[in-house]
Simulated assay, not measured.
Amino acid sequence: MIHPSAVIQQGAELDNDVEIGPGVFIGPHVRIGRGTRVGPNAVIDGWTEIGQDNQIFHLASVGGIPQDLKYKGEETWLKIGDRNIIREFATLHPGTVTGDNETTVGNGNLFMAYSHVAHDCHIGNGVVMANGATLAGHVRVDDFAILGGLCAIHQFVRIGAHAMIGGGTMVSQDIPPYTIVTGDRKDVRLRGLNQVGLTRRGFSEENIATLKKAYRILALSKLRLADALDRIRQELPQTEEVKHLVSFIEQSQRGICR
C-alpha cells in the first residue's frame, strides 16, 4: 500500500508488498524488498538497496548524501539487509569513492532514534545502536555488538562481536570482541567481559570461563600486548572464540582499547 501523498520518483523499484506512509519521499535509485514498511515523512534517497521485512519509522533519513565534503555526487551505495528496525530521526548514509564505495548493514539490527551511521561503515547482524549513538566514517561494527546511548565512535575504529559500549563513551581505538568498555576519551578502557550478553546469546559456561581467563590476561596482567597474546595461545584452550579474539587484536590498525 502506498499512501497517495507519498512521492515516489520514477526509476524507484518497490516490491508490491511494500507499505509507504504519508509524506514519504523515495528517490529514483532506491530499491525496496517485500514486507518493508516506511513510516510517515521518512526520506529514502540515493543509490539505496533495502531488503525484506524492514521497519523504517517516521522522519528517518536513509541514503542521503554523505556528510563528507569530498563527495561530489558519485554513484555510491547504501545496502541494507532484512528485518532491520530504523527508528525516528535515525540517519544512514552511503559510501564514498574514496572509501569502500558503499555502506552495508546486515540483518536484524536496531537503530534507535537519532542514531547515525556515516559513510563507508559496515554493520553486521543483530547490532543495537541506542539513542544518539554515532558512527563516524569507515567504522566496522561486528555481529551482536551493543552501542549505548550517546556514544561516539571515531573514524576507522572496529567494534568486535558481542562487545558492549557504555552510554556516553568516546571510542578512538578498536574494541575487542566479547568485552565491555566505558569512559570518556583518555579514560576509555575495558571494564570486564560481557558475560550477561554472552549468556543470552547461548555461549556455554565453559566457553565463557575460558574467555574470562583470556580477558584477565589481556586486560589485567599488565603484559605487553604481544606477550599477552602469546600467553593466551600457550595457556588456554584454542576455542573458536579465543582464536577470534586473538585474530581480531592482531589485525587491529588503530590499536586496542585495554
Rank of each mutant, 00 (worst) to 15 (best):
I165S: 04
G160P: 00
Q67L: 11
K72N: 15
V171E: 07
A133V: 07
R189W: 02
H93W: 04
I50T: 09
G183L: 10
T98R: 05
D142I: 00
H29C: 11
Q52E: 14
L92F: 07
G192K: 12
T239M: 12
I249E: 00
I232K: 05
V97D: 04
A226D: 15
I20D: 01
G21V: 01
K72Y: 13
I208A: 14
G202V: 09
G124Y: 01
T96N: 06
E250G: 03
A219N: 12
N125S: 14
F57K: 05
H122L: 02
I32C: 05
I44A: 13
E13V: 08
L59C: 14
T91E: 13
L147F: 10
R185F: 09
T104R: 02
V127I: 11
T36Q: 05
G108F: 11
Q238P: 04
M112H: 08
A6P: 08
I20L: 08
P66W: 11
A60R: 00
V196Y: 15
R191H: 14
L229R: 00
V7M: 14
T96G: 02
G149E: 02
G124N: 09
A113H: 02
A60H: 04
V181A: 15
A161V: 07
F25D: 09
P22W: 11
L78D: 10
R37Y: 08
H93G: 06
K222F: 02
Q9N: 12
H244G: 03
G255A: 00
I86T: 06
R200M: 10
L110Q: 05
F25M: 12
S204I: 13
R216W: 07
A6W: 07
V127N: 03
L218N: 04
F25W: 13
P40V: 04
T239E: 15
G197K: 01
K186G: 09
S172A: 11
A226Y: 10
T210F: 01
L59E: 10
I32L: 13
K212C: 00
G95Y: 02
A219V: 09
V127H: 03
A6N: 03
V246G: 00
D45Q: 09
S115H: 00
N54D: 11
G149N: 07
I20Q: 01
V24I: 08
T91F: 07
G51T: 07
R140E: 13
H93V: 11
R201E: 09
R201P: 08
R185W: 13
R233N: 15
I44Y: 13
H138E: 14
P66H: 12
F25C: 06
S61G: 11
L218A: 03
I50G: 03
I65P: 09
V97L: 13
R31T: 15
A60G: 08
N125F: 06
Q9R: 12
V38T: 06
M1T: 14
P40D: 05
A161W: 02
Y215D: 12
Q173G: 08
G99L: 02
I146Q: 03
V246T: 04
V139I: 07
Q238L: 14
E13N: 10
V196A: 14
G11F: 02
E235N: 15
G106Q: 07
A90Q: 10
E241N: 12
A6H: 11
D184F: 13
F248C: 07
Q234P: 06
R200I: 09
L225V: 12
A219R: 03
